[in-house]
Simulated scan of single mutants.
Amino acid sequence: MSKKRGGNRLKYQVEQSIKKINMIGSSKKAFRDAKTETGIHSVSQVKHALSVSQNFVDWAKEQGVRDLFQLKRSHYREYLAHKQAEGVSNGHLINIETNLRLLEKGMNRISVEKGLSERNWVPKTRLIDTNSREKPQNRSQAPEEVQRYLDKLSDNARIGADLQAAFGLRLREAAKTKVAHIQEKDGRLLWVASADKETLNAAQGVTKAGRERVTPCRPGYEERVRELIQGKEEGQHVVPVKYNTLKSAYNRAGMKGSHAFRHTYAREMLRSELQTRGIEQEGRGMLERMLENREAGYRKDHLVTKDERPLYKIISAAMDQVQEYLGHGSGRIDLAEVYLKGF
């Protein structure tokens, strides 16, 4: 490793370790399909891994650690105990464990490349029970609640909020949306992020991990979206202000995070999917059972009878469709608990 000394050496080693598992731009799904060990696929995850790891090595330096590859399991356990004593939440402790595991993975790759044995300073079993994390909350919003926030936003920030509500976009995606991302097919408006990096509506630099995506507009927002793009060039951004400006405007309006728009979008789109099939009430009941099974530690189809199986399959397919709209993978009952519970 580098000959850098002290804290600088440790921080340099952290940066190199995280760099080894930086796979932004590569498909996580492709790695899973090939049963190949994956790494980090999003900019935000890289930032989190670096931040948590740098805080950890600052503490480790105080314990006499001068080289990252001197770490032992005792350091891991003592650091978690130290953070617990500070009173941080279990959710934060779980995130620390997740990111220290990523750090070890990067260190292992460096060791293997040098012909050395893998590192083994992270316990195989997590110290903090992941079930102790604060339960997911329904962050969808009633129309009147949404309107109260919108009334407090500037005209420019309101455009970002409308895009999020229309397509279920993340705030950063809304800020980076160009006119070219909004397309019409068979009379419906779609938000299309292409895998082709050379196109104006490229997913790269816009969606999480640069994943391509096709997301339909909520019918009630189509007229507003057409109004927003009217008269603008394909390469123009729809929102005339940057991401940080949008985020600040939301905070000033009293909004507790921008994901509420995605939650509302998810619920409304699932309701629409089931209404189209004429099974909204039955669908609600089946989804509730699936989520209760997850909470109890069972498979999501636990106690689903043979006669109920067709309905179960329809609900699963509808859930997967909505998750796809949001840019999530299929079969994610964990995300359904966050986005769709109590729709």
Rank of each mutant, 00 (worst) to 15 (best):
F343G: 01
W59L: 02
E144A: 09
A203F: 14
L100W: 12
K185I: 00
I21N: 08
S42F: 12
E134L: 09
M319Q: 10
N201K: 06
Q16K: 06
R213W: 12
T125V: 15
R109F: 10
E145A: 12
F31A: 08
G231P: 01
S194G: 00
Q164K: 03
S194V: 01
Q230C: 02
E223F: 08
H48R: 11
A336Q: 08
R101E: 11
K176S: 08
H259K: 03
A193V: 00
L270V: 01
I333P: 03
L169D: 04
P219M: 02
G235C: 04
L93T: 07
L291H: 07
I96F: 06
H237E: 03
H259D: 05
T276N: 14
G257R: 09
Q84C: 12
A266M: 03
P136T: 07
G278P: 06
R284M: 15
V88H: 14
A142I: 02
S27R: 00
E324K: 00
D320F: 02
T245Q: 04
E184M: 00
E37H: 10
G25T: 10
V214D: 12
N120H: 13
L340P: 00
N293G: 05
V14F: 10
K341T: 05
S111G: 05
L200A: 15
G210N: 09
L127M: 15
A174C: 07
E234W: 03
W191A: 00
T207D: 01
L246M: 04
R77Y: 10
G285R: 07
E212G: 04
R271N: 09
G278D: 15
S132V: 10
R158S: 06
L102R: 11
S74F: 07
G64R: 01
D151Q: 15
E280C: 11
R109V: 01
Y149G: 03
L71C: 03
S154G: 04
H41R: 08
K152F: 11
L303A: 06
A253M: 04
A266F: 06
Q45M: 14
K135I: 08
Y149E: 09
F31E: 10
K300E: 11
W121E: 14
I94T: 12
K3E: 13
K208H: 14
L190H: 00
H41N: 10
Q70C: 06
I24T: 05
R271D: 11
S89P: 14
Q281G: 13
R101I: 06
L340H: 06
K3C: 09
S132T: 15
A336W: 01
P136E: 08
V238E: 01
R271Q: 09
A318N: 01
H328Y: 14
L169I: 06
W121H: 14
L10I: 07
